[in-house]
Design a protein around this nucleic acid. Structure first.
Length: 385
DNA sequence: TTTGAGCGG
């Protein structure tokens, strides 16, 4: 397909992936050798005038535009390879993703041009790119063909082939959403089961005995520490999902070695990491909101002051949710925390001696000699670690 | 390990 194809403006090129500082003048300099140019426009944000990273080059002759596309694609301006396509105002093909191919495990030596040349054997390419960062190729890229047929040919021929000694994956492009859906469907069909809390007295053979009751176990693994002792958890992979599900349904919460065990779908490492992270964030958030503006830091405490005494001294000011004198080796470290319930916050502030009110604005320490044997200083903490 | 962005006057 070329500029004479249906729907293409005759001699207009779309140039994308432009550095924001690229100007019409720079583009003119780059493209004018290909032939007489009618107009060039870098598209800009209407209010800020900042470049949107793409431009149009309108040639007088379609043949010149075609030559520019063939010879100048991926040329570098301001350190960035430009990506040239025919101007195609109908977004249908771009949006549908038909003919879009994803390639991974690319050798770092394969750049945009090499990818383009390799895949153009299968049909007309609308757009092509190797994804890069500051260190060069990230080893994957995209080739968007004009037709599904060309994409199919490319996948059929190239998937699993060696490209500069690396076996590349070539498949239809899938959006993040599609991939998540696929993964979700796979998760629902899990066969691998995770068991924890069965203690040290366990090995593969025994675990297999227990879980064989639910079906055919393809693999059984009790995780061990360096000295060969059970770490209290392991995995059983079943021949099919129904067996795995049955094992979970019947064994979760049951007793093994006198302990209540957890039995559930085994997660991938990535999945588990993200769940742990999420849970940690949630706990942190709860803690912040629980203590926000209500926790008092008390320092300069006499050695004899314990939790009990601290609570007694502060209880006239409101409902205390927790009191803690920090200790080390059984000895007071001379400071601690008193936490009031949120509803008590204002009342607490009003009840505290006048000069102290100022301390709520800034993390300043105040010395309060009026209370016998106990010296207080206050500052409000936003968070409590 | 890695599954995008993108169409004016």
């Amino acid at each position: 397909m070329n500029a004479t194809g249906a729907g293409y403006p005759l001699a207009s090129l779309y140039v994308g992936d432009l550095h924001v500082d690229v100007t019409e003048a720079m583009l003119y300099e780059k493209f004018s050798p290909a032939g007489p140019i009618m107009s060039i426009r870098v598209c800009r944000d209407i209010s800020t005038r900042r470049s949107l990273g793409y431009a149009y080059i309108n040639f007088q002759q379609p043949a010149d535009a075609e030559r520019a596309l063939d010879t100048m694609n991926f040329e570098v301006i301001k350190g960035r390879p430009i990506r040239i396509m025919w101007s195609q105002r109908d977004p249908g093909l771009r949006k549908s993703g038909v003919g879009n191919v994803f390639i991974k495990n690319l050798d770092e030596s394969i750049d945009n041009k090499a990818l383009y040349d390799t895949f153009s054997a299968f049909g007309n390419i609308l757009s092509c790119k190797v994804v890069c960062d500051e260190n060069g190729s990230r080893g994957y890229g995209f080739v968007h063909f004009e037709t599904q047929e060309a994409a199919n040919r490319a996948i059929q021929t190239m998937n699993g082939m060696l490209l500069n000694d690396r076996k590349v994956f070539v498949g239809h492009f899938k959006s993040r959403r599609e991939r998540e859906m696929e993964y979700g469907a796979k998760v629902l069909e899990f066969t691998n089961v995770y068991i924890k809390n069965f203690g040290e007295d366990m090995d593969d053979v025994r675990l297999k005995q227990i879980f064989s009751a639910f079906g055919n176990t393809l693999s059984v693994k009790v995780m061990m520490d360096g000295s060969g002792r059970s770490r209290g958890f392991g995995f059983v992979n079943f021949g099919n999902h129904e067996e795995a599900q049955k094992a979970v349904a019947e064994m979760n919460g049951k007793e093994i070695n006198g302990r209540l065990v957890y039995v559930g779908r085994a997660q991938k490492r990535i999945e588990r990491q993200s769940e742990l992270k999420r849970r940690f964030e949630q706990i942190k958030q709860e803690r912040i909101s629980r203590y926000q503006g209500v926790n008092l830091y008390v320092k300069n405490l006499d050695d004899g002051i314990d939790d009990e005494r601290l609570r007694k001294e502060f209880s006239p000011y409101g409902t205390i949710t927790s009191v803690k004198v920090m200790t080390e080796g059984g000895h007071s470290k001379g400071f601690g925390f008193v936490c009031f319930s949120y509803m008590q916050r204002l009342a607490t502030m009003r009840a505290l001696p006048g000069p102290l009110l100022g301390s709520f604005q800034q993390p300043t320490s105040y010395f309060l000699p009026a209370v016998p044997q106990v010296c207080f200083s206050f500052l409000f903490l936003l968070t409590y670690r």
